[in-house]
Write a protein that binds this DNA or RNA. Sequence first.
RNA 1: GGCGCAUUGGUGUAGUCGGUUAACACGCUGCCCUCUCAAGGCAGAGAUCACGGGUUCGAGUCCCGUAUGCGCUGCCA
Length: 516
Amino acid sequence: MSVRVRFAPSPTGYLHIGAARTGLFNWLYARKTGGKFLLRIEDTDLQRSTDESTRSILEGLAWLGLDYDEALVFQSANADKHRAAALRLVAAGRAYRDFTPKAERADKNVKQEIAERARERAEEGVDMRANPYRELPLEESDARAAAGEPFAVRLKVPREGKTHFEDAVYGPQERAYAEIEDLVLLRSDGHPLYNLSVVCDDIEMGITDVIRGQDHLTNTHKQVLIYEALGAPVPRFAHLPLILAPGGKKLSKRIHGEIVSLTTYRDAGFLPAAFRNFLALLGWAPTGAQPAADATTGHDETQPDQHAGELMSLDELIRNFSLERVHRNSAIFNFDANNPKRWTDDKLLWMNAEYLRTLPFEELLPLLRAELEATGLWRPEYGADERAWFEQTVDVIRQRFFTLKDFSEQGRAYFADDFAFDDAAVKKNLQKDARLKELLPALAAKLETVEPWNVETVEAALRAYADEAGVKAGLLINAARTALTGQAVGPSMFEVFDLLGRARSVARLRAAAHLI
RNA sequence: GGCGCAUUGGUGUAGUCGGUUAACACGCUGCCCUCUCAAGGCAGAGAUCACGGGUUCGAGUCCCGUAUGCGCUGCCA
């Protein structure tokens, strides 16, 4: 049977990077096996689900390039089927109606409350099968339901025995029935609960492999029980290690904020390919990961590489991916909220810069164009008459950029005249030496007559003038860098002169004299 | 509390059936290059493989225990 996997996020906030990683692994597995990758929005918690979240999830997946096969499924649309399934189990004696009034629970310290209750129950040795309605005759149960008495539906978990399944990542798993309560399938208001809905939908969608976060590992036993009660084949399971915050703490939206949202990275100018590559390496590694230089790419499209590097194209990712190589311990997503330079994982930043430097210009262009358009720096000429200039400029400046944002921020001076001057750069390169107030305009005058205008001629002219004025060429070069780009750092200065052209260069040298 | 899972340098990872100096990437330090900053090149610091026992001629690799972290334990998903 061909593989069918699904990614099933709940739309209760933006797309979490951990969820994105789960989506990626599902997608990779589907593409690797020639199977189908389906998408299901688990919006059964109507209180918390929002359309905006759904949009954000869809956008995030599209950004990562994770296209899904077949129609998008909204779990809430299947509630009637889930309800019917629960009632079918009641009729078959695999579940029962529980007429116990619903216990109200303060929504605040749920986790703590649950743990406390579990502890008390364990200490008192409460029998989890002691529900008075568990053995209520079906006729009586039907009658009370027909009379309008509210009820929840619970799965009738056998007293003796255990569930077991083979997890592709965590290996064989077992759990005694005695440790599993008679879980609620249907709330007393008729609302189907998560474990039931998931199983019903996975059955209906023909899911063969359930790949999801490790937080569902122990839930899986309950779901296996539901599959069995429903008489459906149990799929294969693969649970993925969690992604944690520095210190091994849970990575949460509430505590860590934007850092966990996929859209943060898109908006910060990360390249989808780079982010995807980074994400793939969280909890998974190709066989005997080696430096990229040693990659002995066999160029067999279907076989994993002997020694894949860490930088992998989408095709390489697909080719090398396997659930067997997903490991079990959780990964830490490293970042430092108090350090602007380290606001996100170092390796992610490095990887993005690497992609930015090496991506074929054609592939970079649309992303760059979007960034420049968004910041009002794009000019149609860049795609037409000035395309050669644009490409040359981008190739020069991208060598030391980290994100797409750098093109519109540090790189603004290449595309517009209204760029900002970095204070530290002005102090260091312009105000450091008062002579520059005269030297810069004089240099401008010299450059006005240089023919032709290119890297060599400008360099020769500048060095000649430095000699003539009795100053080190470096003084003029560094001052010019700040005068022309507003920055203290950047590409080789003569390249910059060449790219900006005579008119702009000269004008900016003169204008900068006023800053001294 | 119970049950489950995990634990290799700061981070991500490699380490096939246990076999001499624990590998790679990011980050960090220094040097080279140089008009700055990156990139690149070179050199280096950083791990008694969580801890304690055991099995073995020999254990990161197998077994037991402890600690720590995480997950589940809900008429949340």
